[in-house]
Design a protein around this nucleic acid. Sequence first.
DNA 1: AGAAGGCTTCTGCCGGCGCCGAAGCGGTGC
DNA 2: GCACCGCTTCGGCGCCGGCAGAAGCCTTCT
Lengths: 248, 248
Amino acid sequence: MPLAALAALLADATRATFCLALLDGRAWSAGELAAHAGVAASTASEHLSRLVAGGLLAEQRRGRRRYVRLAGPRVAQLIEDLASHAAHTGPGGGPRPATLRAVSAARALAEARTCYDHLAGRLGVTITDALTARGLLRQDAGFALSDEGLSWFAVELGAPLPGGGRRPQARPCLDWTERRPHLAGSAGAVLCTTVLERGWVVRIGSGRAVAVTGAGGEALERLLGLTAWASAAAPRPQEVLSARAGGG
Amino acid sequence: MPLAALAALLADATRATFCLALLDGRAWSAGELAAHAGVAASTASEHLSRLVAGGLLAEQRRGRRRYVRLAGPRVAQLIEDLASHAAHTGPGGGPRPATLRAVSAARALAEARTCYDHLAGRLGVTITDALTARGLLRQDAGFALSDEGLSWFAVELGAPLPGGGRRPQARPCLDWTERRPHLAGSAGAVLCTTVLERGWVVRIGSGRAVAVTGAGGEALERLLGLTAWASAAAPRPQEVLSARAGGG
DNA sequence: AGAAGGCTTCTGCCGGCGCCGAAGCGGTGC
DNA sequence: GCACCGCTTCGGCGCCGGCAGAAGCCTTCT
């Protein structure tokens, strides 16, 4: 596949909207995506077929529904990189949110969200900084876990990293809102899965926004010395609303 | 700038050809690019204007010539990532070279080439592996230079790395031909600049292909224990021909 | 079995984009 | 000053692609 053909898949506003929505790492149905992008079902169907044929999306038919998700971490990284570059390019920097509701949703997303399969936003960046300050993650000459970092995942967190796979254990992912790198790769995925499984972090709304729970605040303080979420209240109601809106 | 607009810049075969050619890190004139892509000067002019306006290229007017280059390392990385993903996607894998001359050029490129501002091909991957085997570069839990690696650049190579900049000192760049990562980032750039300055590696033809000289072979053996280029002959004539052809 | 719902295919419309050649502009060389 | 050269702008052509609506298929629900 030539480079231009791959880029053409993302060069349409509707398909780009699909891919950005799918960055939440979950599977969406064709109808959900159509409504999200504001196009007819027939239009969405054709777009999805092209994205699947191009290898960007993986589909799964369940009854009369067609569920679709990003084809894998590499695709997510590619879209994330493109989106990050796009956001920091051009005259205006980026479109500003129009409605009050959009502002609330944007604020919730900037605070804490998932980025495909890892944590992003202020939460993701703060955790990454804490790992670095504790000598668990090296950012000075690249981006890699130290030996202490590897044992921290296995012993302190109790979630050892898979080894030997082709996927890098640690890689930087440029955060849209913070404009600084946060932890991605299999370590980022393990961390995100773990905190969600243990109820330390919960999804709010139906989109990418998440919030730290009380137990999560305690865990972050115990494991990483983070006090910012130590006595965090439950997420405020207006931030829960329509968290699926917005691409960031 | 929306994601779709950025992708649209690369979604045209002619513009993609321009960007891939510019991955050699040097400045091309508008006419050179037009000839390379096989389009009229007027067509190339319009494409270049769009790429410059979109922030992908930086231009420099010199007299009646318009020189253009990639806007920076981030752009180069983005295009490299997209091209790498595109090359490994799709049914056929990729187009095969047609002519004998193209085969020779492709072989030279696979052996050793520049990738924007660092070394790639078998040479780049082998150096990266040697750095890793000597404990100078960690790839097991990410991608970062060790403290020994930092001092290796300063003491052994005699080219200390710039510190404190926003650009990562070490990052992986997936090699098209080897399908494995090689060293990029400021460390990769310093290494490439150094070996070119000292005549250890020379450009062959007008494109991205390079070759290790006799002095270079000795240096690689002394610094990294690499014997593969220790008694390398001068580059063979047919590999010099039309090394500018091919996008790889 | 019948009805409803989700998705797909087909058709036609329309706008945008890539392309070229011709003409024009500015810089360079003789 | 004149000719040449590289690039740009303009006009026009043709094609591709995105879009919605109608019709149809298949699954699920009642």
